[in-house]
Amino acid sequence: MDFSVFFQPAFSGGGTYLDWVLSGIQWTLLVSILGWVIAFTVGSVLGVLRTTQRVVLRAPATLYVEVFRNVPLLVQMFIWYFVLPEIVPRALGDWMKTQMPMPEFWNAVLCLGFYTASRVAEQVRSGIQSIPRGQTYAGLAMGLTQPQVYRHVLLPMGYRIIIPPLTSEFLTIFKNSSVALTIGVLELTAQARQISEYTFRTFEVFTVATVVYVLITLTVTVAMRALEGKVRVPGYLGPAGR
């Protein structure tokens, strides 16, 4: 094993191969975190819609979740990148292909975000549904409107309850971000592949990439544990309390 390869001047771009790794890490983090912002926002809205009593709200949310959950991420990635620009109005399609800045990056963010949203939605729904009915009735009895019940009673409790499964979804988005390499985003896995091609040091390069992913997992896990401890509800057993 010879890790000195990372300090060799890279084939192109002026830096060393370590710089390629660092740039890969940067894209992995950017794609994942921006994707998560979308996933969390859209997923929360969908999750809430799925718990409402109105079919007009519930049905589209259910349809969304089923569609995005049952098509592989890779296929979705290709649809965002290759198919969408061809079936939207021509001007928009041309813009997406030629004018849009960093199209592969933004397509990857959107794809990952909307894909993960379907999974977040399921967690939010199950979180809300695990809260005893009595709390909703108590809220309504106190004169809160339905949206207020969600805002002040169900969501604050629901989010706390689902921190562990959400952590796992958040970790998954970092791993799934590697699928972005199929549309040309040079994230960590793609960089590892590229460096191994230039240096033939496949073992060393893949080892470093794997270690970085483990470190990302550890960091996120520790951070989410801390968050969980901070927001726990006194007197509650289980994930929300402890």
Partner: peptide
């Protein structure tokens, strides 16, 4: 569980 499947496939 910390490693992306694509990286595992490459490995």
């Amino acid at each position: 569980r910390s490693t992306p499947l694509i990286l595992v496939i490459f490995w």
